[in-house]
Amino acid sequence: MSSPPAHQPTAEQQPEDPDLEASESTLKPAVAAPPKQRRRPALIGLGVALVALGGLGAAWLATSVSDSVSVIAMSTDVPRGQVIERADLTTADINTDPSLEPVRAGRIDEIVGQHATSDLSSGSLLTLDAVADTVRPGDGEALVGVAVTAAQLPAEPLRPGDSVRIVDTPNPQDDPPSDTPNSIEAVVVRSTVDQESGQRVVDVVVPEGDAASLAARVATGRITIVLMSRTEGE
């Protein structure tokens, strides 16, 4: 008598393989690696340049602010000879410049009450030679413009208030005079350059009786201006 055939388990009844379960449990889904970012040297260089420019700009701004000074400026038009009032003045901050000599804002009280020596325009910076304690010419005085070349002037620039002598000179081909040449004492009011002729015009105040004689001498062109001592004015 044959033995009954052994019962074969179905796929659902197959015993689980512990090794297979262990190997399956260790499997993980594959994860794609992040793409590598390419560095762009041009963009990096641009960023560095912008940072450097920003630093230079900040340094320039700090230097400009530290070099600025407060000076006096005109807030209204003031004609020559008129008394300057406080309402005519204001202040402005400018960068220091050796070629400029504006009056510092701290001296504004000294300027009030003085006379304008020339026409002062609104918005212009005020300089010391633009004001004076008194109006020139005064009683018994006359203002004469003396046009000269650089050779007829001292190398030292003339300033308002300087005492000068306008001296007669001989003709170019004449011998030097044996006697002391004639001269007229004067006080400098202002000195400007005539744009058309290139000559310097020095406005001077002289006694009224000397005005005609000085004007005639200036017309000949045979004069020179001599700067006198500044000791008393210092």
Score class of each variant (00 low, 15 high):
R159C: 14
S163Q: 14
V78Y: 00
V188H: 00
D19Q: 13
N171P: 13
P79L: 08
L27H: 08
G47Y: 04
L89M: 01
S23K: 08
L53C: 14
E208M: 08
A92Y: 12
A42C: 07
D19S: 15
V189A: 11
L100S: 06
S191A: 13
N182Y: 13
S183G: 10
Q152L: 09
Q173N: 14
V164E: 09
D17V: 15
G209K: 12
R40I: 14
D133Q: 12
T10D: 09
V187L: 08
R104T: 10
S124V: 06
V48M: 10
N95R: 06
S197Q: 02
P35C: 05
G55F: 06
Q173A: 15
P18T: 05
I108T: 03
T26A: 15
P79T: 10
A92I: 09
P160T: 05
T63H: 13
V164M: 06
A92F: 06
I108E: 01
T63K: 07
V31Q: 06
V83L: 09
V188K: 00
I44Q: 04
V201F: 06
T192H: 12
T91M: 01
T180C: 09
A150C: 05
R217G: 08
A32C: 07
E234T: 13
P207A: 13
D168K: 14
K36S: 10
E141Y: 03
P176E: 11
D162F: 00
A58V: 08
L53D: 11
S3G: 13
E196L: 14
L100V: 00
T220R: 05
G138S: 04
V103C: 05
S99M: 07
S68Q: 05
P18F: 02
V112W: 01
